[in-house]
């Protein structure tokens, strides 16, 4: 079943003073099935962050449609947007975006508190998740007291606790060292194998090689895509690297 459909999405920014227009996305089309783990790759300025913001309902497309479970996201009124985000989407950011004012436990519970979930239900959801993400020991600590990997796992727990339809990750390994990154990506695969749909934006070939499918964005449009199928990760990594080389050298077909 198609979970997310992106159809002819276009985004044009107008600069603040006067009419100069910048086209961030020209025509983006793709679909994501339930249970997929998709990576979107592209260079800086290719429009991948804009795309993620639009998918996250943090920004609106200038044209085109985005359907989540056949429902048009443009049809959600502004007042319901926050609730929609809270109930259907989970986010993981490059710089974690944890709040220093809350303990790890409260950071994870934040979306549930905002959704006014009863206290007992919160506890019920927190414990298995904390166990899965190995956070049991640090629940009472604060974000500034724990390591980068622990922070990112906390952020993932916060994203997953609402049982989102789709987990959106923006350069989740960007601020982590290679060993921690590898652990985190393993974790993503594990979560994905448990049935969670993941969409990850990255420019790290290593990170993308953990996905089932990689979309390449260039100049605001989906330029190419690769499926992992049954090949081993090293081989997939090589393929992605080759594609990137083609993309950046000879890719000027337009």
């Amino acid at each position: 079943m198609s979970l997310l459909q992106v159809q002819h999405v276009k985004k044009i920014y107008t600069t603040r003073f006067g009419g100069q227009q910048v086209q961030a996305l020209s025509d983006v089309n793709f679909e994501i099935e339930v249970g997929e783990f998709v990576a979107i790759m592209g260079e800086s300025g290719s429009g991948k962050t804009t795309l993620l913001n639009i998918l996250a309902t943090l920004d609106k497309p200038s044209a085109g449609k985005i359907l989540l479970l056949q429902q048009d996201m443009a049809g959600i009124p502004d007042a319901k947007r926050a609730a929609f985000r809270r109930d259907h989407l989970g986010f993981v950011f490059q710089d974690f975006n944890l709040l220093d004012t809350f303990s790890v436990r409260d950071n994870i519970l934040l979306p549930l508190v905002l959704a006014r979930v009863p206290l007992a239900e919160m506890e019920l959801r927190l414990l298995p998740l904390a166990e899965q993400l190995q956070l049991q020991g640090i629940l009472q600590q604060y974000p500034y007291e724990i390591s980068g990997g622990q922070r990112q796992r906390t952020a993932i727990a916060r994203a997953l606790i609402t049982k989102p339809k789709i987990l959106l990750a923006d350069e989740p390994t960007g601020a982590l060292d290679s060993r921690t990154s590898e652990n985190l990506l393993q974790l993503f695969r594990q979560i994905n194998q448990n049935g969670q749909t993941i969409l990850m934006v990255t420019h790290s070939t290593k990170a993308a090689s953990h996905a089932n499918r990689v979309l390449f964005i260039k100049d605001g449009t989906v330029y190419h895509q690769l499926y992992r199928t049954e090949q081993p990760q090293e081989q997939f990594y090589q393929k992605i690297a080759d594609s990137l080389t083609v993309l950046s050298s000879g890719g000027n077909t337009l």
Partner: peptide
């Protein structure tokens, strides 16, 4: 900054 993060996580304008 805190409110920006909380809005990403699902806090509405009204809230």
């Amino acid at each position: 900054e805190r409110f920006r993060i909380m809005q990403q996580v699902g806090l509405s304008h009204k809230e």
